[in-house]
Each structure stands twice: as C-alpha cells, then as structure tokens.
Design a protein around this nucleic acid. Sequence first.
DNA 1: TTTAAACCTGCAATCGATTGCTTGAATTAT
DNA 2: ATAATTCAAGCAATCGATTGCAGGTTTAAA
Lengths: 345, 345
Amino acid sequence: MKPKKRTTIYDIAAKLNITASSVSRALNNSNHVNEDTKKLILKTAAELNYKRNILASNLRKGESKTIGVVVPRINQNFFSNVISGIEETTYSKDFNLIICQSNESHDKEIKCVNALINQHVDCIIISVAAEGTDYKHLQNVLDHGIQLIQFDRVVDELQTLKVINDNEQATLDGISHLIEQGYKRIALLEGPQNLNIFRQRKAGYLKALRKHKLPIIEELIVENAWTKELGAEGTRKLLSLPEPPDAIFASTSDFSALGVLEVATSMNFKVPSELGILGYANEPFTELTSPSITTIDQFSNHMGKTIANLYFEESGNKDTAMVPRTISVQPKLIIRASTSKNQNI
Amino acid sequence: MKPKKRTTIYDIAAKLNITASSVSRALNNSNHVNEDTKKLILKTAAELNYKRNILASNLRKGESKTIGVVVPRINQNFFSNVISGIEETTYSKDFNLIICQSNESHDKEIKCVNALINQHVDCIIISVAAEGTDYKHLQNVLDHGIQLIQFDRVVDELQTLKVINDNEQATLDGISHLIEQGYKRIALLEGPQNLNIFRQRKAGYLKALRKHKLPIIEELIVENAWTKELGAEGTRKLLSLPEPPDAIFASTSDFSALGVLEVATSMNFKVPSELGILGYANEPFTELTSPSITTIDQFSNHMGKTIANLYFEESGNKDTAMVPRTISVQPKLIIRASTSKNQNI
DNA sequence: TTTAAACCTGCAATCGATTGCTTGAATTAT
DNA sequence: ATAATTCAAGCAATCGATTGCAGGTTTAAA
C-alpha cells in the first residue's frame, strides 16, 4: 500500500501550462474549450492515468450520485433480486449504490439510515425491519431533503413514494383459487401484524372467505408463523384439531409453506388431496419440492427497476414538489401441484 | 425535494460565536477543546440536527472509509451470502459498502472497477466475471494504491490478497466419496477453464481418479456445462453413450446438478442406485429435491467475514508493505441421498 | 515572583473539482 | 476600417471539514 499520489487536474494543467479550469471544462466536455486543447487534455489525462476525484466533485456540486438501500437481509432471495434490479438501473445512470442490512433489527436500521444521511446520499430506498413501530428516523430522512422510497414493507403513515405489491389482491386470487379447487376449511398462518404486508395478506384472506360466503373460523388463524420452524409448529397444531383444515395458506413466506409440507407429510396428510398448501414469494425451491408448491410471484427484479426508475423520474422534475404516491406491482399466482385437488398439473 | 440547506460546522460556530475549527475538534472528540465548550457544541449540533458531510471530511482526510465489492451477480446465493458476511464486519467498523455486479460481463466489470477507483474507495473486493482473460483494470487498482482482495474466482497471476475455497481438496473428497460408494464411471461437467475455480475442480477430479487407479475417460468429460440447461444437455449426451457413466459430478454448480437430476429422471435412470449425482455450492434447494443432492458447502457467509477481516488486519499495519497471500477456507462435503448407493441416508 | 508548561482557541491553508466573472484575442458584420 | 460579437482561457471563490502553527491565557513549578 504505497500512498502513491494520484494525478489531479492540476497535474494535467501544469504539464500543459494551462489552468485547472480548462482541464475541468475539457473533462466535462464543455464547449467553452478549444477543440484541439480539449483533445490534448483528454490525451494527457489518459496518459497520466487520471481518475476524477468524485469526492471533490460531489462536494462542489452538492450532489452525491449515490443511493442508499436498507433491507432486512441482503441474502434473502426477494431482497437480493430487488437490489439486483435497482443496481441495473442505477448503474446505467452512473449512480452508486450503498447497501446496508438491518438484520430485522430496529436499532441497526436507525444506524444504517443515519449513516446514509451522513453520506449525503441523494435517495434512500428502504424496506423496514420487522421490529419497531417508531419511524422518526425515516421522517428525519425527509427533513434532510433526501428522497425516500419505501418498498414492500412500507410504513403507511409516512408521506413518501412507495412501491408495493398488491398483497391483498394477490391473496384474494390465491384463496379464491383454493376455494375453486374445492377446499373449504382454509387456515391462515399469519405474520407480525405491525408489518403492512402481513396485514394486507390477512385482509385478502378474510375478504376472499367473505366473498365466497365461507365462515371465518378463529381457530384456523395462527399468529406469527414466520419461519419454517414456526410454520411447522403451527401446522402441527392445526392438523391435530378435531376438525383440521383442508388447506393452509402460509402467508408469511414459502419457507413457512415448506414447514407445512414437511409436517403434513410426516403426519400422513396427502398433499394436495387432503391438504392444499399455498405459499408466498415464489422462492426457487417451490418448484422443486414434491409436490411443488403453489405460490405468489412478486416480480422482485422488476420491482427493483421500478423503484429506481421512480427515483429518476421524480428527481427529473425538481421544480414541482414531490407528490407522495404508491405504485402497485401486481403479483402473480403461480399454480402448482400443492393445490391441485381437482386436476393434475 | 426542497433543497433545504443542511447545517454545517460554520452554522454551529456562528451560533456559538466561535470558529469552525473548535467545532470540528469537538465533533472529533479531540482533547484540544475545553470540556464545557465541547459539551455545548455537541448539544448545539444535536439541536440543529447537524450531520457531518462525509464528502468534505473524506476529501480532506484523503480516505473514504468505503469498500467496493464487485461480484458477477448479487442475487446468486453464494455471492449474496458473502456480501452479507462482508457487510456484517464492515458495518461494525463504520465502513460503507458499495456493491456492483458485473453480470459476468468483462466490460461491465471494468467499468465498475473504474467507478470504484473514482470513488476513492479504500479497498476493492472482487470475484471476477466468467468472461475475460485480461486483467489490466485490476492491476490499475493496485497502481492507484488501493487494496485489492480477490475471492473465490481469483486471477492467480495478480499479486494480491486472496481468499478462496480449497476447490481441489473439496472435489477430491467428493469424488473419493463417490468411489467409496462404488461408482466407477464418473463423468465431469466442467466449467469455463479460464476461471481458476473450475480448473481446480477439474484437477481435483483427475487427482481423485488417479489416486484410486480409475481410468480417465475423455468422453465422460463435458465442457462448459455451466447452467441448468447446459447441465441437462450434457447429461442427455452422457446418458445416451453406449457405456453411460454411473455418476456425474456437476462441478459448476448445483443448478447444473439439478439439470442432471431432471434428465436422469426423465430418462428413467434411478438416482442414486443407477446414477450418482454430486453438485457444488450447497444451494438451499439441494436438500429439497428428491432425492436430495450431495454437494459441497462453501461457508459463504463466513468467507465474507474472513475477507473483511483480512482487509482490516492488513490496513492496521500501514508501515509494513502488503504481503500477497492466500487464505484458504476449507469447504465441506455434504452427503445426501443422491450419492448413497450403499446405504440409505 | 518569575519561568515554564499546559491548555484553548483562532487563523489560514488544504483536499480536488467546479463555475461565474473577466479579460484578451479572434472573428464577423457594418 | 471600426464596431460588435464570439470564443478561449484565466482568476478566484466555493463546497465543508480538517489540521499545523501561532497567539493568548491559565496553571504549575522553581
């Protein structure tokens, strides 16, 4: 690690006996520089292996061309796909991406957000942690004049741009599909109700039952069945009931659905004939289990692109004030074997 | 987005009738400031919702406390786990992470690396794209005095810090396991040989065969079977041979192994009794297929932490020159049903 | 009481790039 | 040939934080 000094515009200027101003203008392709000198400067810059110091440039220009992303977990399929989508768009616009993960911890989320504010990022994209009900740190982002875009797990009260899946509609579609297949006692494994997505999925579930005039049975609704283990535990209880359900909607995730499948198999319930299973998220493994699991695809990569585009669209019109709005991406029901009571798929 | 001006140290100084120097010193907890004024400054800073401008600070200090990461794909299980591991460590050290993906494109990789150099990152962590054999851009990183750490897919010739899996040993273990199970005609689906990891896996395969005195049969070695589709295609050819193999090592990935499994099933080869399958990477789905797939775990999250720690260790001793060295993480063979010819697992 | 040391605080330069303003030269129009 | 315009390039301030040096005050030591 020798601290070899990097060439600056001054080095180039000195070598060519001109001022740094001209060098800067040439490098920014301004038309206030003679074409010949511009070429000469560019050539010299290349020779000296010049790399613009973005820190200085951004400081001067008061922008950072950087977007911060905070997600619960980078290595969760849905989020890494969203990030990948965001990256594809931001890269094409020459923006940098700073990635943080909250690990579902409210405290870490706050620290990450503050770190990003310090960095003077132009925008913060966030999907909030499961913990926490207090969102001063997000209000703080807005107070600093930084664009804030929430996605997937959003805080309704905050006036920001939001990109979400239509969880309620997707669930409605999914449950309706179950009912059409002939399932009548449909259980719900629900997630923490402080997160909007889980509230919406529950709402979709209830709406579907009402729509099809099915009774809502309290004992078929299991709280907080987020992980595979909790999903399995909930399923064990459900299937031990005097009148067990004939279908289970693992609203929290496909992992939970996997737990359902494993318990069902071990308790000798036949899937899908005796028990239908509906998951959420279209994790890659859902098409590999036997039977494969019916689930809901969230178009995560596309969602990432939508988010990034939203930012650039919005930052385009600096004159008009930001209008808080929500873009809803329509998820898609992926029908597979685990819910095909009637036909073979 | 109102361009609300952010408070600077000058605002604080003006309010308290002191100079920015003192404010700066107070904020940096220097002991050259009176305790009382320090407290007052900190209090005022909090009141004014002051956030240090890292750009200015870094520009002045000539450091960025930022690490750049370039991987082929963010949303690939192995890489997102490594990134997650890196993040956990860098976060605890107050460093930022800028993430880029090359999408396996050499050109994009070069652009990403240059963008990171522009950003004045302190370190670049990279796993190179499959494309490309020319690594001037990485040499360029070193020439700029930026620490460079390669991982997994490394370029041997470059004198840098490297963190790798012992691919050869892992493969040796895997193939030996196959042989012990009684498989005798073991095929290899190999990856692009410009990548070190695939060369090493091939080397391990050959070494294992020699060690156990098995013949090396050219027609059982299939080039470039990287994806699930290519793996399937290669398998179709292999299983159509007059003397088909009795085991296939999908050295490129578990996805390729999945292709093998699907083709084998559709061609009515019984796994594992008639065909053993060995994958690589321990993707989550490998334990969900039927039969589950034997594979090799790379301890990706741990690898990420190792990489980040290596950087901080190295940056600790600025006085001594960097000694290029390689840290080898030992992967682990995960034995599952797809190779259990003898016993049931 | 005098001298030395310790302690605060301010001044001003610095990091590298950008940009409004100005000047001088070259070009065009009258 | 002279005035008007265009063009190129330089000057100097600016973005916000940091830091070596210097000046002034207070405290401790002689």
